[in-house]
Write a protein that binds this DNA or RNA. Structure first.
Lengths: 153, 153
DNA sequence: TTCTTGTTTAATAATAATTATCCAAATGGC
DNA sequence: GCCATTTGGATAATTATTATTAAACAAGAA
């Protein structure tokens, strides 16, 4: 389970070849910036990091390649709901089924899931109110159209 | 546990009074639209519904009041990360601690949580790849500054 | 290597989502 | 109903993201 930056870049190059993606200096630099940044960076943040090494790079290139990496399963994103705000209309605590194909969200009653148990104490000073589960999957329509998406959730 | 529209509007009026919010026709119409729309509506969708009853209303008013409702705990949103895309840099499956105060996200190793168990079969045709848990709470900094947020996660 | 072709990049414009500003109008305690 | 305060609507501004296109580059064949 060695996840050194170099290991991940090596795998990245293999996956690019396998996916038929040209291996450009920009792409490697963008991917490296994501891996090295740690945490949960935004495209804007990656752009800032990459620009140090490639001052001429454009923000659109960063966005485009992040999208390419996501589609090819080389990267994951934190949420499929970025973009627009969505409101809950169900006032009860509940969980969600999230379609990674089309972003559709279905409610699951809290009772449909065994209570979520933390095995360890949360980090010091952190207060937890409630756990919410997202089941990532494909809705019937998307499962029919793009079953291959299963590979990279 | 009666959640009829009228019940929820009655509670809405009480909560407005308790929070010192003026009870306007617009606000009631917006809140009603959210409750009646069901599912996970966007501000744009609410705007469309409200405009049928108040043709002169502006999109900014809808946004402004949704924000007021969220801050007062009268509504919840599906995610605190809407707006900008955030990438994972941790290649392993894992869970998240999410601070509802500042939006900060902390990774929790998958092993820190008991395996999530669905008690029922998912809806027909739906394929599930993996569950992801978000523990909604407050990070140490926000817990110190706004402990009252606890009321509405 | 060099050539050829399809892909990728950078710049720019366009679009979508959200927030801020400012003044008129409506609300609520008295 | 009266007045101080809050709210609403129009508009502009900001932020996040995608589309377009000509020029530069990568990868495989010769």
């Amino acid at each position: 389970m060695a996840h050194t930056v170099e290991d991940r870049l090596k795998k990245f190059r293999q996956q690019c070849r396998a996916a038929g993606l040209a291996l450009t200096h920009q792409r490697e630099t963008i991917f490296r910036a994501v891996v090295e940044s740690g945490g949960h960076p935004s495209p804007e943040r990656i752009y800032g990091l990459v620009k140090r090494r490639i001052p001429a790079i454009s923000l659109a290139t960063v966005y485009k390649n992040i999208r390419v990496f996501l589609d090819a399963g080389l990267l994951r994103e934190v949420t499929v709901h970025h973009g627009t705000m969505l409101l809950e209309t169900n006032p009860e605590d509940h969980h969600h089924l999230v379609c990674v194909g089309c972003g559709a969200i279905l409610d699951l009653e809290q009772e449909a899931v065994e209570p979520v148990q933390l095995r360890r104490r949360p980090p010091a000073g952190y207060r937890i109110f409630r756990p919410r589960v997202e089941f990532l999957g494909l809705c019937p329509g998307c499962a029919r159209k793009k079953p291959e998406k299963s590979s990279h959730l």
